[in-house]
Write a protein that binds this DNA or RNA. Sequence first.
DNA 1: CTCTGGATGGTATTACTGAG
DNA 2: CTCAGTAATACCATCCAGAG
Length: 472
Amino acid sequence: MAQRAPSATGPPNQHMQRLNGAIARLEDLGTVFETFQSNATKALRVLREEVKELREELKITNGRVGFVESLIDVEEEGENEVEEGEGVAGEVLGEVLLDPVQESINANQQSKELADGKAIKDVVNETYQLLLGIPKLYKKYLPAYPDGEEEWPTDSATGHRLLRFNWYAIAKDPVNAVSIKAIVDAIRATGAERVQGCAPFLPHVLDAHLLERITTKFYYLAKQYKAYHAHDSQTYHAGNGEGRNGEDDIFGGEREDLEEGSEGEGARMEGALRRARAATVAAQRERKARGTPWDDAKYAAAFLVNAQSDNEDEYKEGERPPGAPIRYKRRRPGWRSTLLQQLYDEVDARPDPTPDKARMMVERVMGTDLERIKPPKALLKNRVRAWMVKDDVLERNRDWLEGRRVARDGKLWGEEDDPVEDTVKRKKDRQGGGRKAKRPRADTSAIEAAHARVAKVTGGIHPDVIFDALDG
DNA sequence: CTCTGGATGGTATTACTGAG
DNA sequence: CTCAGTAATACCATCCAGAG
């Protein structure tokens, strides 16, 4: 500086020139800045408006999802009264939907429901099928994990390696974990195109829930696989060994020789078969009772499948004399009350209003009663009622009322109130015991963190204030 | 908490039969 | 033959209790 000062004493117009140049540059800078500021403001405004727009879109989308859910009968678990009201309120009170934490919780619940919905189940099943390279997800197609020496199976069409699971290991076993991850990836990548109907839902399902669904399915499949291969673990699984049927080993192959067939007092018949046969009898009784005094809500439970007699084969397998028709043997439950028996006797004596159906039914003959069986445990709607059970039997077995075997009679029979399904109890338990569903921590914490970052930037001032200042 | 087996409930599929 | 209905079976899903 000390050296410069003397030299600065040059001709005055040189100074003026430089000064003018500096001013001109300043002016240029001013215009540039103004343009920049105006552009920046514009840009910010655009962003702000876009956010508004997206929020509005989100509102509409949420509304649509709600509508679709109501159509496909998806309901929220737990106290849905509050939540359901919100769907409507959400449109009016946009505020509720704009709270990021609340939204994340909603999204999380929505995700959970969707993951248990048909569309997602479909895509999960479809993807299992595809990556395993089997025509159906039936137990007979489920492949074993390849042996050490075996060559890894590939898709004959694409040449890609097929997926294999070790059904005897748990889901978290590395072998299975890798395959399960592959399913997630495949669903994310191509699920929407492969399976019609899941595209709108897939983006709303969180990875955690998708994984949960896939894992559950893994256990279903493993269960089936193990049941199917239960008894060939030692002997070589001969493909022709099941020439007889291959299907009947669902009951474990050797099923403790059904000794109840011997007129004895064993257990009831196998569930599915018992129900299949009893269902037609129940339906016929209901038809015949129409228009009679028994056709009354009071007696409606008489026509439940669970109240019917067992319908056993008249002859054990292979013992039916040639020429004898197939007939079923009615074996009445010992607990049946006289009132109920009277109802059945009177109804059975009537003609069937639809003789065509009656003609197609297998003939029933009376067998001995089954004295020691209990009414089956059942959902309330399928459960035997107290009036249908002999008083003394019920007196001796009060636990049937607790254990989902027998329901109270309810108002129609002079009681104070109707029995209620005890799923209520489960919900209560959950409320009492703690939270009902856990939401993956990352979800809201990420949003909260973002929230915090924004707050830091704005210094706690509402963004709108900042934008407004920019505008002015 | 994870996993399993048993029980229950419900739908889909298949075989069969009588009627037209 | 097709159609509709019964009967039997296969399969999926869930709940629950209990083991580890």
